[in-house]
Simulated scan of single mutants.
Amino acid sequence: MPRTVYLNGEYLPESEAKVSIFDRGFLFADAIYEVTAVVDGKLLDNDGHVARLARSCGELEMKNPLTAEELVHIQKELVRLNDVKEGGIYLQVTRGSSGDRDFAYPENTEPTVVLFSQSRAVVDSPKAKKGIKVISTPDIRWRRRDIKTTSLLAACMAKQAAIAAGCDDVWLIEDGYVTEGGSSNAYIITQDNVIVTRPLSNDILHGITRASLLKVAKQENLVIEERLFTIEEAYAAKEAFISSASTFVWPVVAIDDKPIGSGSPGPIAMQIRETYIEFALAQAV
């Protein structure tokens, strides 16, 4: 059965959903997005995604077209219509179409709103069990990475370089320090069992899963340091991992062909993953 998607107030078969060629999301990547994980047919960490969507709209002076209640209703309806047991709901909001191409923000345009579901295994993930290998590469993205825009070409290029090198993902480097993964937040665990991750700023995405993971880690009495760390420090780490809405936690077992720790998923990362899933499911809607 074809997927049912949501476009500007309508639920449609995916083959019938069309957007104007003059839409600013298509012409300028003048658009933002969110991805909410679905497990057992429920939305995980969704309040955070809804709040971040509103923040992104504000930072870009873009009209937020939906209330939180309206958005959650649409997400749940797509879960129901597509019988999504596990996977995610993708949401994209563009500034809309002004009828022609012009760099200046158009006045009085209505945003384009798109949502669709994706069914895939997120809990019983092979990469979570085996871990991932990453390469490091320069971070060439723009300087407002805290806004979750659809301008992802630099990330696509970096991830493709990783695939070409026989790896799974990238860690991005700026001024000698790790910023984040290709589409995730990055963490190391020192030899003294301290979890280190970069502090929030305009240089990284304010991860919703990251925020929940840090709460979980504190509840588990794990020590956390939010500070910059170098790729050399990552090479010497006891463990490393990434987090995102679509991965939860994936251990990093090698960086630039250098094994991290034993070269297999470490116990602390796996503990955090299991505890996070329990935590998120307990609050899922």
Rank of each mutant, 00 (worst) to 15 (best):
D40G: 09
G41E: 11
G41M: 12
L43V: 09
L44Y: 10
L44N: 04
L44V: 03
D45P: 01
N46E: 13
D47Y: 10
D47L: 13
D47M: 04
D47F: 08
D47H: 11
G48C: 03
H49Y: 14
H49C: 10
V50G: 04
V50A: 13
A51E: 15
A51I: 07
A51S: 15
L53R: 13
A54E: 14
A54R: 10
R55E: 12
S56N: 15
S56K: 02
E59P: 00
E59K: 12
E59S: 09
L60C: 04
L60P: 04
L60V: 08
L60R: 08
L60W: 06
K63H: 05
N64R: 14
P65H: 05
L66C: 07
L66M: 13
L66E: 10
T67F: 05
T67N: 04
T67V: 02
T67L: 02
A68W: 04
E70A: 09
E70T: 08
L71N: 09
V72M: 12
V72W: 08
H73N: 10
H73T: 14
I74G: 08
Q75N: 07
K76C: 09
K76A: 05
K76Y: 06
E77V: 01
E77S: 03
L78H: 13
V79M: 13
V79P: 11
L81M: 14
L81T: 09
N82D: 11
N82W: 06
V84D: 05
V84L: 12
V84M: 06
G87C: 05
G87F: 05
G87A: 03
G87M: 04
G88L: 10
G88Y: 07
G88T: 05
G88H: 03
I89L: 09
I89F: 02
I89E: 09
I89V: 15
Y90Q: 01
Y90L: 00
Y90A: 00
L91V: 15
L91H: 14
L91N: 06
Q92H: 04
Q92L: 08
Q92M: 11
T94P: 00
R95L: 00
S97C: 12
S98Q: 14
S98K: 11
D100N: 12
R101P: 01
R101T: 03
R101D: 01
D102Y: 10
D102P: 00
F103E: 05
Y105H: 06
P106F: 02
P106S: 00
N108V: 00
T109H: 01
P111G: 00
P111S: 06
T112F: 03
V113A: 01
V113P: 03
V114M: 11
V114K: 04
L115E: 05
L115K: 02
